[in-house]
């Protein structure tokens, strides 16, 4: 249990440092409880365009996740319940794509975006992150075990696939929908490489990319501000994903262990 507690150490240290006076951060002894509690580091963080970055992150992660879940629910339902030639093959291709590192495509994608003048735009930031195969996988697994009696009655009534999907299948798919949403949202919220590449303007950066400039080797913010402000910035950054995880832990773990897939 000691080791488990040690695992939380870096987080506690982060929060503790964020409330310290910058002059009391570098101390010979480790002080877990700040001698003086202060909010001045959080105020200092607000000097940077952190609200803009946060807004960008919220817009990008929310739209990308929404589109991904809508598309995944439709595709996952079709691949599990509708009969048409090639559906097994299509699913195999989706799964096989997980083997290929997206980095091979990142450079051409970036050039394409620059040529279309989509660099530093929301569509450039969002669209490449929409097709997350994990979503399709979770929905397909769920709809495969869906009791078919529910659909039969609707078919007898002459309802088409879209009606059945919308009014019967989807309302019952709450738990896969939540699982897929929290996982995909977290991945989008934390996404680093693509937002780093596609955003040239300070005003279009997302939170992880903007705050990364507080690192001593990358940017210039910390050299001026020190660890206390940097820790305040990352504490703000991890609040949404950690809160989401603590609230919906069950769905997170169920969704991830279902496929043993990530990203």
């Amino acid at each position: 249990m000691c080791f488990v507690l040690a695992w939380a150490g870096p987080f506690l240290w982060m929060v503790s440092t964020s409330f310290k006076l910058p002059s009391q951060v570098m101390t010979r002894d480790i002080e877990w409880i700040p001698r003086t509690f202060t909010l001045q580091n959080y105020v200092a963080v607000l000097k940077y365009p952190i609200a803009t970055w946060a807004l960008n992150s919220i817009i990008a992660a929310t739209i990308a996740t929404g589109l991904c879940i809508a598309a995944s629910a439709l595709a996952g339902y079709a691949l599990a319940r509708l009969r048409f030639p090639g559906r097994k093959l299509i699913f195999m291709i989706f799964l096989a794509s997980l083997m290929i590192p997206p980095e091979i495509g990142v450079v051409p994608l970036l050039i394409g975006m620059i040529r279309m003048d989509w660099a530093s735009t929301y569509q450039g930031l969002i669209l490449p992150t929409v097709a997350n195969v994990l979503g399709v996988y979770i929905f397909r697994q769920f709809f495969l075990t869906f009791p078919r009696e529910l659909e039969e009655a609707a078919i007898v009534d002459g309802a088409g696939p879209l009606r059945i999907f919308w009014s019967i299948a989807l309302p019952l798919a709450r738990s896969p929908a939540i699982a897929a949403t929290v996982i995909v949202f977290t991945l989008n919220w934390n996404n680093f490489l693509w937002p780093l590449l596609i955003t040239f303007d300070e005003d279009m950066k997302t939170l992880p990319v903007g705050i990364a400039a507080f690192a001593p080797v990358v940017g210039t913010h910390t050299q001026m501000e020190g660890y206390a402000v940097a820790m305040a910035a990352v504490t703000l950054l991890c609040i949404p994903s950690v809160a989401l995880f603590l609230l919906l832990q069950r769905y997170f773990i169920a969704g991830l262990s279902a496929g043993g897939l990530k990203g």
Binding site: L74, I104, A131, F165
Partner: peptide
């Protein structure tokens, strides 16, 4: 055959092909 199936899958397959597959092949 449920032709709607293709339309449903296309909702995901179109962004998948455009932004995941095509860049890799081009790369």
């Amino acid at each position: 055959i449920d032709w709607t199936g293709y339309a449903f899958v296309a909702a995901f397959a179109v962004p998948f092909l455009l932004f995941n597959v095509a860049p890799v092949l081009f790369g």
